[in-house]
Amino acid sequence: MPIRNIAFGRPEEAYHPDTLRCALAEFFSTLIFVFAGEGSGMAFNKLTDNGSTTPAGLIAASLAHGFGLFVGVAVSANISGGHVNPAVTFGAFVGGNISFLRLILYWIGQLLGSTVACLLLWFSTGGLTTSAFALSSGVTVWNAFVFEIVMTFGLVYTVYATAINPNKGTVGTIAPLAIGLIVGANVLAGGAFDGASMNPAVSFGPALVSWDWTNHWVYWAGPLIGGGIAGLIFEGIFIGYQTHEPLPTTEFN
């Protein structure tokens, strides 16, 4: 089972140059992603007088987050694995693919990247608010909690299938695209209800800069649970117990 593969990591790993480079790559990737995603919402609000909650605003948010994450994953995939998300890192951890010490450094890089992105947006827009994630009218915290679990499960399951799975084959070349597409699709599905975070770092930066922590726990608990479940399922069922080579693709033609 994946739980047996969970590792704390050796103390020297915390300051090893390779680990620090990976954390730095996560910092820059998350900065790029959050700047694009949060910035698109701020720009749309400015152009439409706070119209980001309209259907057009939802589509704009979907495209910006999908494109931004595609780039964020692609530019760090060969350095840190292109997590760009504490929930993805947690899913990799519970599946035994990353140590606890490396997880902590990844999280620090991701949270700092999001915070710096929001500070840059605040400064470069002349003090416009970096809005924290919030629930729509009629949506309870438990509705949002389930939304975040399910959407993040789909995201981390996609990461495992296209990026982490050692048997991914040529599908690994489209991992950044697939990951960006699932996030864009989930924004369309859940954006009108709770903002569709799926990423504690994406929620943390705006909440910190605007100092608005309303229902913030939902955007940590939901994604971490969803990501953890995806990691356990994919690692335990589709990777951990594989005893034969996958059939060549020609067998299905």
Rank of each mutant, 00 (worst) to 15 (best):
64 A>K: 09
65 H>R: 06
65 H>T: 15
66 G>S: 13
66 G>P: 14
69 L>Y: 08
69 L>C: 13
70 F>H: 09
70 F>V: 12
70 F>P: 07
72 G>M: 10
74 A>T: 07
75 V>H: 10
76 S>Q: 11
77 A>T: 06
79 I>R: 07
80 S>L: 08
80 S>E: 03
82 G>M: 06
86 P>A: 00
89 T>V: 15
89 T>S: 15
90 F>E: 00
90 F>K: 02
90 F>V: 01
91 G>V: 08
93 F>P: 01
104 I>F: 02
105 L>V: 10
105 L>K: 11
106 Y>W: 06
106 Y>A: 04
107 W>E: 09
108 I>W: 02
109 G>V: 13
115 T>H: 01
116 V>W: 00
117 A>E: 04
119 L>C: 11
120 L>P: 04
120 L>D: 07
120 L>H: 04
121 L>A: 07
122 W>C: 13
123 F>A: 15
124 S>N: 06
126 G>Q: 08
127 G>M: 14
127 G>W: 14
127 G>V: 08
128 L>K: 13
129 T>L: 12
133 F>C: 05
133 F>I: 05
135 L>K: 09
138 G>C: 08
139 V>P: 05
140 T>C: 03
143 N>I: 03
143 N>Y: 01
144 A>R: 03
144 A>G: 13
144 A>M: 05
147 F>H: 10
148 E>P: 09
152 T>G: 02
155 L>D: 02
155 L>C: 01
155 L>V: 08
156 V>Y: 13
157 Y>H: 09
158 T>D: 04
158 T>R: 07
161 A>F: 06
163 A>C: 08
165 N>F: 03
166 P>V: 00
166 P>G: 02
167 N>W: 00
169 G>I: 00
169 G>H: 04
171 V>Q: 09
171 V>T: 09
172 G>T: 10
172 G>M: 04
172 G>A: 05
173 T>D: 15
173 T>W: 15
177 L>V: 10
178 A>Q: 07
178 A>L: 04
178 A>W: 06
180 G>A: 00
181 L>C: 07
181 L>E: 00
182 I>D: 13
183 V>H: 02
183 V>Y: 04
184 G>D: 00
185 A>E: 02
186 N>I: 11
190 G>V: 13
191 G>S: 09
193 F>S: 13
196 A>Y: 06
199 N>L: 12
200 P>C: 05
202 V>F: 09
